[in-house]
């Protein structure tokens, strides 16, 4: 790692494009939005940065706190469901024959090849009252003669509620959970699991006492990769949630578009970012304690 000091020219030439890119398309826009969050609208198109905290204070009005809180718990549940489904998938791929693994991983990544919007509309086609799932259930209902015994099948209202948003988010973010889990489980030395069994532990005990702690880095990466973008998601709640499942991402989009209140949208965006930074800081703190601790 010392070598870059001896070859400064090479270092700068290779680092420059990345630095310029980040500066132009990430840091400067971010700084603009951050500045805007302390600004006021002076006309339909003009914003003056006055250093006011009014936008932030407005964010703490009950209606917004409620939406932020709802965004957090929907994201927490979606992340948990994602983890519960992704862990067995990742485990299964790792323990499948080596020649099957690339294909199985491809199946996990495959949804990325289709536009998110199209995939979400496809979910609507599956879950709506006259959708694939309800038709299937109706067919099974009739097959069991329940229509004669109980009465005609009543289609389930599966869309436009919190449940639909959670299902949609889990579906969209699943690969981001599977891949980091796969990467850590694959590197896990199986002799740890064998040692645990050899010492008399049951399969369950081995899973919770050895496998989970040793794959914790993958679990944490997966949670971060999934939870943070879920928190700001607006497309899925917009399409699947209808009006009563609105999340903070939708409020922010509305401020920038329909409401034309960029300063308030900026403040809400940064509020979300502060929450994220706090979560990452907590994780870093826990991580350093786990590593350095002697008999904690």
């Amino acid at each position: 790692m010392e070598s870059w000091k001896q070859n400064k020219a090479v270092f700068w030439v290779t680092a420059l494009p990345g630095v310029v890119w980040l500066l132009l398309f990430f840091l400067i826009p971010l700084a603009l939005i951050w500045g805007m969050s302390f600004g006021e609208k002076t006309s339909i198109v003009d914003i003056e940065i006055t250093g006011t905290l009014a936008n932030y204070l407005r964010s703490f009005e009950a209606v917004y706190v409620k939406i932020i809180w709802k965004s957090i718990w929907i994201s927490v549940i979606s992340t948990a469901v994602c983890l519960a489904i992704a862990y067995p998938i990742a485990f299964g791929i790792c323990f499948s024959p080596a020649r099957w693994r690339p294909l199985l991983l491809l199946l996990v990544i495959l949804p990325f090849w289709i536009n998110l919007l199209i995939r979400t509309y496809a979910l609507i086609a599956v879950f709506r009252t006259r959708g694939t799932l309800n038709f299937t259930l109706e067919w099974l209902w009739d097959l069991a003669f329940l229509d004669k015994l109980v009465g005609p099948y009543q289609p389930l209202e599966l869309l436009y509620n919190n449940g639909a948003v959670i299902v949609g988010m889990v579906y969209v973010f699943m690969p981001f959970m599977v891949l980091p889990l796969y990467a850590t489980i694959e590197r896990l030395d199986r002799s740890y699991l064998e040692a645990s069994l050899d010492l008399g532990a049951s399969q369950w005990r081995t899973f919770f006492s050895v496998t989970v702690p040793l794959t914790m880095p993958g679990i944490v990466s997966g949670i971060i990769l999934v939870f943070i973008p879920m928190l700001g998601m607006f497309l899925v709640p917009d399409l699947l949630g209808g009006t009563n499942a609105i999340m903070i991402g939708n409020v922010i989009t509305d401020q920038f578009k329909a409401a034309n209140d960029w300063p308030f949208g900026a403040a809400l965006s940064f509020l979300l970012m502060y929450v994220t930074f706090a979560a990452l800081a907590v994780r870093a703190f826990i991580g350093s304690r786990m590593k350095g601790g002697v008999g904690v």
Binding site: D189, S191, E194, A195, S196, D198, L199
Partner: peptide, 16 residues
């Protein structure tokens, strides 16, 4: 394996 009256020292030690 978890019910056999034998125990093993692994080549990689597998110390948790």
């Amino acid at each position: 394996a978890n019910q056999r009256p034998v125990n093993m020292v692994f080549q990689s030690y597998a110390v948790f």
